[in-house]
Nucleic acid binder design. Sequence first.
RNA 1: GGUGGGGUGGCCGAGUGGCUAAUGGCAGCAGACUGUAAAUCUGCCGGGCUACGCCCUACGUAGGUUCGAAUCCUACCCCCACCA
Length: 308
Amino acid sequence: MADARTPILVGPTGVGKTAIALALAAHWPIEVISADSRQIYRGLDIATAKATRKERDRVPHHLVDVVRPGERYSAGRFALDAAAAIEGVRAAGKLPVVVGGTGLYVRALVDGLFAEPTIDPRAREALAHAIDRMDNATLVRWAGRLDRGYRGEGGRHRAARAIEIALLTGQPLSWWQAAAKAQGVVTPWTVRLTAPRHLLHQRILARTTAMLERGLLEEVAAALADGAPVEGPGMDGIGVREAVAVLQGRLPRDLLVSSIATATRQYAKRQETWFRHQLRGDVLVLDATRSPEQLAATIAAAWEQQRS
RNA sequence: GGUGGGGUGGCCGAGUGGCUAAUGGCAGCAGACUGUAAAUCUGCCGGGCUACGCCCUACGUAGGUUCGAAUCCUACCCCCACCA
């Protein structure tokens, strides 16, 4: 069983990953391992387009609703959690299928990240605080001084990461990346779903409109009332931040749908770029224009073929 | 009907005689990406080329002034505000 391949379904938001995974259940006894950095958070079901309760009753989903909004989560933690979940599903005699749009999470699971040493969360938070007050140029310069392997790319976010690692572990990030190579925990069988851009845009708009009808604003208002930190992780997803802006009067209500749709389109585009270039090994590329049932049948057939 | 303001590249919006295919922003396209990744960044962005250069088309429309106009003049069309 150690060499068993694990089906992985990736693709941009709106291609229909969820529907296809559910349709796949007609072919295999599957359980879904979600690789989605926002569905990890509890609540905000509409905003993050989670599979419904009913759907999840029919096909169990793992790594959905695991932390509360405001709590820090990471790709590394995902790799660990997902590996455990996959193990569990296998032990129960079912087939785990990884489904998700967060490329880095999939990479963490398949290729492994470097073995990051334990970092004191309090020191990390204090440093993050100091970093927040510095401008981009300062951060980039600082990161360059601390880590000669740092290329100055990726802006403040990645500069901050380089600084954090160098300061808190005593070794630069590039050193860890080279010296502490990790192993992936699954052998992937990857299906990359894609769709013509105009179709994707169309689906995104329809889906955004539907989100509002299902009560996106109410959902976000409830999360805020519940004490979810506006700035915290989990509350920064597309749809959520725009809804918060409307609730706080910073964005006119009638611009809500278009703002969310635009941000979603841009995200979908970034995902397409990531999956087009960053996936390693054999990848089955499928145009998701057809129905979920047809696609599931194609995927099931291809899976059978690669097994023999 | 009168007076004033305005019509700029897909959109918004600078520019008031040459250095302007035209600052910016948005949208779009392409790309980067090892632990906040729904993040964070980079490039391109009127069209066509035998492309470190050349050609064409472009600042409401039509004329005009000038060596030279998005920028000045005239007429017309449209929009907005106020007055009637």
